[in-house]
């Protein structure tokens, strides 16, 4: 059994780019929660992090949009955004192509994924990594779920992706952490930017930590769009991690709507070694 830690975290670019505009006390609590997650990953002697995110047209486009994609590059780089704007320095990010290959081969036994030997990380991975692996010493295996432009994968298939990732992680000898990023309500880059549906977020996060499969899979894209905005489609990244860790009840380590970051910031732990 090689899964050593799993959780979710927020990836809003505002956390780094507009950090000083938030209530300093709330932001401090958020950074402490990120640091607690960093510590949990380090304490588990993590050798690689599988990070499930939804990128925002940094690498993938509608000319051949992968529903799911897994990175298999020799190394990654990021952020693709202006580092001065995002306030995350541009850097190379270590990879493990051999582990990627083994994970992809195993996932393909039950779920079709594309693979990518080139991948520029955007804020969806760059912001979490800035806090979780600030010295960029842990190899990353990026996983992308298309949440930007429909048609999207059915949530039941996203659940199966999580199960397939878990099976792949469990047969790998490496000690692996699994992190999902994004997933709460937001209306990014639209006239409604800044709108937050705290009660939707609160309900979803409670379904998540309690691994309520039926409730999570009962969401429809229509309801998500109306209640959680186009950013809410990213709930797929969270559902994927819940599926991978169904046997344990999780914990909420941080939950607070932060309008200047345009979303509810949330950090959960969904699996720990006992």
């Amino acid at each position: 059994m090689s899964l050593v830690y799993a959780g979710t975290c927020c990836h809003s670019p505002g956390i780094t780019s507009r950090g000083e505009l938030a209530d300093p006390e709330i932001r401090q609590q958020l950074l402490q929660a990120f640091d607690r997650q960093r510590q949990a990953i380090e304490d588990a002697d993590t050798q690689a992090i599988v990070m499930v995110s939804s990128e925002h047209f940094a690498n993938f486009f509608m000319d051949n949009m992968p529903t799911y994609s897994i990175g298999m590059a020799d190394e990654y780089e990021g952020p693709i955004e202006d580092p001065d704007w995002l306030k995350v320095p541009h850097t190379r990010i270590p990879a493990n192509p051999d582990l990627s290959l083994r994970i992809i081969q195993q996932v393909l036994q039950s779920v079709d994924v594309s693979y990518a030997q080139e991948w520029k990380f955007d804020h969806g991975m760059a912001v979490p990594l800035h806090f979780l692996t600030p010295d960029y010493k842990i190899p990353i295996i990026p996983v992308n779920i298309n949440c930007q432009n429909p048609p999207f994968s059915p949530l039941s298939r996203t659940w199966e992706l999580g199960k397939a990732l878990r099976r792949a992680i469990d047969i790998a000898p490496e000690r692996i952490a699994l992190i999902g990023t994004g997933g709460t309500s937001h209306w990014p880059c639209t006239p409604d930017s800044g709108r937050i549906n705290e009660s939707w977020d609160n309900e979803m996060i409670n379904h998540l930590i309690n691994k309520r499969k039926e409730a999570l899979l009962a969401y429809t894209d229509e309801a998500i769009y109306q209640q959680a905005g186009p950013g809410g489609y990213e709930v797929r990244t969270s559902i994927c991690i819940a599926a991978a860790t169904e046997e344990q009840t999780g914990e909420i380590w941080f939950f607070a709507p932060i309008p200047i970051f345009a979303t509810t910031c949330c950090i959960t732990t969904l699996y720990q070694l006992e």
């Binding site: 047209f57 930007q148 432009n149 990014p188 880059c189």
Partner: peptide, 8 residues
């Protein structure tokens, strides 16, 4: 209909 993630 341009996606905001491109339009911005």
């Amino acid at each position: 209909g341009v996606n905001g993630q491109l339009l911005m």
